[in-house]
């Protein structure tokens, strides 16, 4: 009799597993298909793009679509702009976040809680309300069409500071005491004690910020009016609009230019990024 129960359980288990995999395979296909479609379109000839029903894979792979797409707009320049603004933005924002986080975790100050509340309040304010005022400030500073104009308004840090503060607080008190006994000031304690211990979370923060800065569209769109200052997403959007007229195969090839760095970072560090997001959001 016991064998009967186990047998039935196994059958149920097997059906359950199959259904689970089916659901997940369908979901994975639905999510993955647009990426595949982007790639396969980018490799097709103009004739192959304009047939219905569409073909799933081109007869001959047209790598030269990438060359043509690269030449439709100054993509080299867009790349340089994106790299400069994303990298400098990440360095500045992480530094600012680490300094604030250390102060809120380790430095005693009478109004510390008050300032902490002020910082958290900033998190609730939607960035969209700042578009016009920030544009006005930047035009007064003559920062329109400059790298600092793209970068500086978005390097203040609430989320990052909050995340790092949690981490600094979790470092055993005795380590900080030891640093103090050794006569280390706050700056040295931060550099030699707090930050090295926070390396994993720091890494996740850097990757997360890099991707979000690389992807950002609205702000760079507003502060760049000259073509040579555009970042990749803005440049790509402009390529499609009236400025040029290019076929879907070239447009998809150009989209791949924009995506490649992000996808590389994502697939190398996906485990760290996904787990970081889950942990950060739950705690935050």
């Amino acid at each position: 009799m016991s064998r009967g129960i186990i047998g039935r359980k196994n059958a149920n288990w097997f059906i359950g597993r199959t259904v689970t995999h089916l659901i997940l395979i369908v979901a994975t296909l639905v999510i993955g298909l647009p990426f595949f479609w982007m790639l396969t379109t980018a490799l097709k000839s103009p004739v192959e793009v304009a047939i219905f029903p569409p073909i799933w894979w081109p007869e001959t792979i047209r790598w030269d679509n990438f060359v043509t797409a690269w030449k439709t707009a100054p993509f080299g320049r867009f790349y340089i702009n994106s790299i400069i603004t994303a990298v400098s933005g990440v360095i500045l924002e992480v530094s600012i976040a680490a300094l604030s986080a250390y102060a809120f975790a380790r430095i005693k100050f009478k109004y510390r809680n008050f300032f902490f509340m002020v910082m958290l309040a900033a998190m609730m304010i939607p960035g969209q309300i700042a578009l016009i005022p920030n544009y006005v400030i930047l035009s007064k500073l003559k920062w329109i069409n400059t790298y600092q104009g793209i970068v500086i308004p978005h390097v203040s840090s609430v989320f990052g500071a909050f995340l790092l503060r949690q981490y600094f607080l979790s470092v055993p008190e005795s380590l900080y005491d030891a640093a103090e006994i050794d006569g280390l000031g706050h700056t040295k304690t931060m550099f030699y004690v707090a930050l090295p211990l926070a390396r994993p979370v720091l890494g996740t923060l850097v990757l997360y910020l890099f991707i979000s800065k690389w992807n950002s569209y609205l702000w760079p769109l507003i502060v760049t009016t000259k073509q040579h200052m555009r970042t990749l997403p803005v440049g790509l959007a402009m390529v499609r609009s009236a400025e040029y007229s290019i076929g879907p195969e070239h447009l998809m090839a150009a989209s791949i230019f924009v995506l490649v760095p992000v996808l590389i970072v994502y697939f190398i560090a996906q485990k760290q990024l996904i787990e970081g997001i889950a942990a950060g959001a739950v705690k935050g």
Partner: peptide, 26 residues
């Protein structure tokens, strides 16, 4: 990893490929 990937994908590129997917004839 695959189901999560659009979270980090450039929205402009997402919009490009979806515009092409929504294209009425092809």
């Amino acid at each position: 990893a695959i189901i999560f990937s659009p979270t980090f994908t450039t929205s402009v590129a997402i919009a490009m490929v979806w515009s092409w997917i929504f294209e009425p004839t092809f």
